[in-house]
Write a protein that binds this DNA or RNA. Sequence first.
DNA 1: TTGTATGCGTTATCAT
DNA 2: ATGATAACGCATACAA
Lengths: 331, 331
Amino acid sequence: MATINEVAKVAGVSKATVSRVLNNRPVSTETHAKVMKAIRELNYQPNAQARGLSLRQAKIIGLIAPDLLGDFYGPVIMGIEEVLQKNDYNLIVSRARSKEFRLAKMLKEKKVDGLIIATPRRIGEKGILALKRDNFPVVVIDGNVGEQVCSVEVDSYQGAFQATEHLIKLGHSRIGVISSPYAFKESRDRLRGYQEALKQYGLLYDHQLVREGDYTMASGEQEINQLLQLEPRPTAVFAFNDSMAIGAIHGLFKKGLSVPKDMAVVGFDDSYVAKTIYPPLTTVQQPIQEMGAVAARKLLALLSGEETAITHITLQTSLVVRASCGAGLYK
Amino acid sequence: MATINEVAKVAGVSKATVSRVLNNRPVSTETHAKVMKAIRELNYQPNAQARGLSLRQAKIIGLIAPDLLGDFYGPVIMGIEEVLQKNDYNLIVSRARSKEFRLAKMLKEKKVDGLIIATPRRIGEKGILALKRDNFPVVVIDGNVGEQVCSVEVDSYQGAFQATEHLIKLGHSRIGVISSPYAFKESRDRLRGYQEALKQYGLLYDHQLVREGDYTMASGEQEINQLLQLEPRPTAVFAFNDSMAIGAIHGLFKKGLSVPKDMAVVGFDDSYVAKTIYPPLTTVQQPIQEMGAVAARKLLALLSGEETAITHITLQTSLVVRASCGAGLYK
DNA sequence: TTGTATGCGTTATCAT
DNA sequence: ATGATAACGCATACAA
């Protein structure tokens, strides 16, 4: 690998001049040509570490996520990476293991310029606030850690409202809910959306129709069986994520029931599996990739200093109507 | 952020000494204590860029993948990251867009120490060979780019053999195939596995039973419809990935047919969706996460210089029996 | 416009 | 065992 010194020597100028053409600063046309020629000849590529050391920036940002197995973080990474690539930044992906807040330190040592955290529940609020204290630019995705730190999340309330309203308009009046753990804020938001839709359409809220799941397929199957015992039986069910919705569908199938004929099913997420299940799942789409992109843009704005405000961005959901609710086509 | 100089000042020693305790070199017990005390007081963290510049290594490796949307690259990243984290390396994830081999250059500039490439078809063989020419440590995942470059892949032949054998033992003698594009080596390997199983069990190979798909759900649905027209109709179908298997299941359902009663279905990959489809899909499991881990370990070995040989590692598959083939339980 | 000199935070070489 | 000092490769303030 050639260095700036060798380029300078070959071009017959000082390395300061080479640095100038590298950074588009005023240089005479002739010297510019000479330097460019030398750069091409030597196949020169500036050393990012040296530049970073001098400029005090790594041009890298870090993403911390709990795991990469599901189909949530893939799109998040895509969204982030796309924005970063356009701005000549790179992305370091790191998994948050156990109780390690050490990670952030590791990244700090590594000189990432900022952090996107997609796992507030695990890393713990105090850890994130500690980062703020060190003036470390941080954006949180899909989790609430208070007013202090930038966040981007999805409008859970509105998504649940849409889903419920859709089922009501389809003629359902007894709509079961398989909720995520009540301890999570998003669960409560979605529950509010469900209740508000009921209310607006003059339907009564029946707490027996609401079951608490844990986001897994197994719990979806378990809770649908509970709902099935109710009298009269609900004719539709709204699960707070796709996995539980699919678990519910499995449970219904095992009982010989048909979806959507015997029971309409709506999920939340529009994960990859929503399209692959049969019948294709009607679900509330989260703009996951865009969440990543928005978070990345915010972080970049923070880094450039052109935008220092702490913001809390809420993205809108949209209902994707497929077949599982009885309204969509089998496609 | 405190620097090594400040630590030296506070501890009342030279920065060389601080560097020594940092790198576990012989230092008197007392000075060691003094330095450690100063480090704690100042909350000092060595600057990775400066260290990297001095040592000529970034302690970062790069992964280039075509996209992160599916459920293949998530586990790959997990596998890589786990190994790297243990060795104090970080992972930069980058998406290979269009024809950009520029990416590698960008990473080179950024001083990643090595590269794992998970998209040989897109980035092009010549690009990878160019990297070799520059002595850039490279490991390729799941693609063949010739003898020159390290690779880790899956034993396609064996996987296909297992799947076919399983169906034969279940009593099927006319087994349809929905293949991946014949242009890919893995397709030909899997086809060989299929044929060899047939042969070993005294079954005749009928080329009409083999259809070429393109890895999408849509093509799975399309090709199953073709197979359905055959006389006599096959009683089982083996798709070369899960998406096509699921597409086939959708096609069968739309025709009112039952899986596995009317048609047994086996896939390949054991992707996330294999578990979520109903009935759960019997499929050939690829040890995806392990592929990432193995690739990472190989790259690290290359980097440390303790292992310079070009290796081609083949990992074994295993058949996961679920319900779609008629042998497994609905679980 | 161009060159010189200095700093960025480490590690490493050579003395002592 | 410890301390100066020179790299590492780049950017930049200051001179010319």
